[in-house]
């Protein structure tokens, strides 16, 4: 059992009096993974934004890297956020900056990330090579496809090698082949860096890829966990959100065995 990286304690976030998430509690330790499933508007994105202090809880506490971020001022949150990376739902790339400038942004702007100027470009190129987009350095985000933008977003979220990485619907709106490629990149990132990973998705298949596959560094491919001597994926749990409430937390087997109408329907549908 490692150190607790993120902990939600009875967290409620409301907009104009309507709770978007209500009484949500969970925690994740270093090196673990969580897959948060849920229908649209069930509060999944709110959880990720609250985890980084982008949204303030109305009730409860959020502990990020052991610090209660609900009492911290915005200025004090930047040092904690520097230890985390996030892929936003539609990538949220800065549309007036080139791909290189986008990926370099956290290296140049996060105070805790001390990268000498001459190392920024190589680090950016390396991050883009990881997502197989090293040829797009000088392009603008609008010149890339949706899947490519998502991959740039993954590169930007991981370029500082953060301890915690949050992925908000990384496969939403993508064709199945591109979606699987994106998931393969996320698994690769998780297994190579042993980063604590939280992924929010509507697709059960995304969770299954996280649970059943590992990245084989020597073969440079994904392979089923447990095959070729690779161990099973440890510390992965599924969370299911329903109308702002956390209604399930457990392993993939427990999720599939659940008799709850909402959960089982959700799983079977995918």
């Amino acid at each position: 059992m490692g150190e607790s990286v993120l902990r939600f304690e009875h967290v409620t976030v409301a907009f104009d009096g309507d709770p978007a998430i209500e009484d949500v509690s969970f925690s994740i330790d270093a090196g673990e993974s969580r897959v948060i499933l849920g229908a649209a508007a069930s509060g999944k994105t709110v959880i990720l934004k609250t985890a980084l202090g982008l949204l303030r809880p109305d009730e409860g506490r959020v502990l990020l890297f052991g610090k209660d971020i609900t009492v911290l001022a915005e200025q004090d949150l930047y040092d904690l956020r520097a230890r985390a990376g996030m892929l936003f739902q539609e990538s949220a790339l800065f549309d007036s900056l080139t791909i290189e400038e986008n990926v370099a942004y956290p290296l140049e702007n996060q105070k805790l990330v001390d990268v000498p100027n001459e190392q920024v470009r190589p680090r950016v190129a390396e991050a883009l090579r990881f997502v197989e987009l090293e040829h797009t350095l000088d392009k603008l985000p609008s010149e890339l496809s949706g899947g490519m933008r998502r991959r740039v977003g993954i590169a930007r979220a991981n370029v500082t090698a953060p301890q915690l990485v949050l992925y908000d619907s990384p496969t939403a709106g993508l064709d199945p082949i591109t979606a699987n490629n994106i998931m393969a990149l996320i698994v690769k990132e998780r297994d190579l860096r042993h980063a604590t990973t939280i992924i929010v998705t509507q697709r059960f298949q995304d969770g299954q890829i996280m649970a059943k596959y590992r990245y084989n560094a020597s073969g440079k491919t994904l392979e089923r966990a447990g095959s070729n001597g690779s161990g099973a994926v440890q510390g992965l749990k599924f969370l299911v959100m329903k109308e702002g409430r956390l209604v399930f937390e457990g392993s993939e087997e427990e999720l599939q065995q659940s008799r709850d109408a909402y959960i089982s329907k959700f799983v079977l549908r995918h």
Binding site: R81, M86, E90, A92, D95, Y105, P106, L112
Partner: peptide, 14 residues
Amino acid sequence: VTEQIDAMRALGTD
């Protein structure tokens, strides 16, 4: 509306 402001905050810029 394209979450670039949130991304900016998440990436260490006020």
